[in-house]
Nucleic acid binder design. Structure first.
Lengths: 132, 132
DNA sequence: ATGATAATGATAATGATTATCATTCTTGCC
DNA sequence: GGCAAGAATGATAATCATTATCATTATCAT
């Protein structure tokens, strides 16, 4: 981790983005984040938001998940988890299932893969939308 | 499935796309498919390829997987499976792990979700790229 | 303070995808 | 087979998230 930090310039803009994300439990896409920052008096250019997110993600300081054709970013301080996505309202919930993680390692091994990461999305209707 | 078929017009273009995909084990994005069709003497307009893929996918006649910001399409005749993706060469391999499927159902239930689908991608280096 | 390098912001450019529209095709009915 | 309604097609314009460009500014080590 020290090595990664040494490779990233933590400019004030990037620090603003990092703090904002770390202070929240949500999954942000670039545009949403830019708007939220602006609403809280911290306007950062949209290009810079994209670049900042990419740099922080690359450095491992935030985490990302690809949902559809867009990436969403979240706090990296959490224990690894995966996502339940409501196809109706877009709600994103998190879950941890150690056994699944384990089985993934096994699958990779069986297929001669050296895992660098994974992404598990479970799509469906959340509690709220089921009753609608 | 009968219901789904009744909702899709199986035009000659869509049939061409369906047959092409079913005759292959690969994961196609729209542009690749359009080019391959054209190379085999069956030119279909790019807009029509996109629309055809979307319609066939919606009808359940082909399957899709979101990789990065693009969707890829494959034969739907297979037993459900998930994917190992090599981050180096882009190779896509398939795997089936019944226990993971089961645990996903459990996770969903525990979170009050009614599953409609899921997507599991394991990223890493394939056998070939590990030894490079 | 200086210099080298990287970041910023506004905006043009990019590229996958979708909308538009005139034309063609499909399907059910007679 | 003909007809009508509705959907599909293809070329291309439009869309939109994202990235490139470029002049300017900021960062960081010396």
């Amino acid at each position: 981790m020290i090595i990664i930090l040494a490779m990233l310039k933590l400019t004030s803009h990037r620090e603003t983005i990092l703090k904002f994300i770390n202070a929240s439990n949500a999954h942000w896409d670039a545009e949403e984040l830019a708007r939220a920052l602006s609403d809280s008096g911290k306007t950062i250019g949209i290009a810079t938001v994209y670049r900042g997110l990419a740099a922080l993600d690359e450095a491992g300081l935030i985490a990302s998940v690809q949902l559809g054709d867009r990436k969403r970013y979240e706090c990296a301080d959490k224990k690894h988890h995966d996502h339940l996505v409501c196809t109706e309202c877009g709600a994103i919930e998190e879950f941890v299932q150690a056994k699944i993680e384990q089985l993934q390692e096994q699958v990779a091994k069986e297929n001669g893969f050296e895992i660098t990461g994974h992404q598990l999305l479970i799509f469906g209707l959340c509690r709220g939308c089921r009753n609608a």
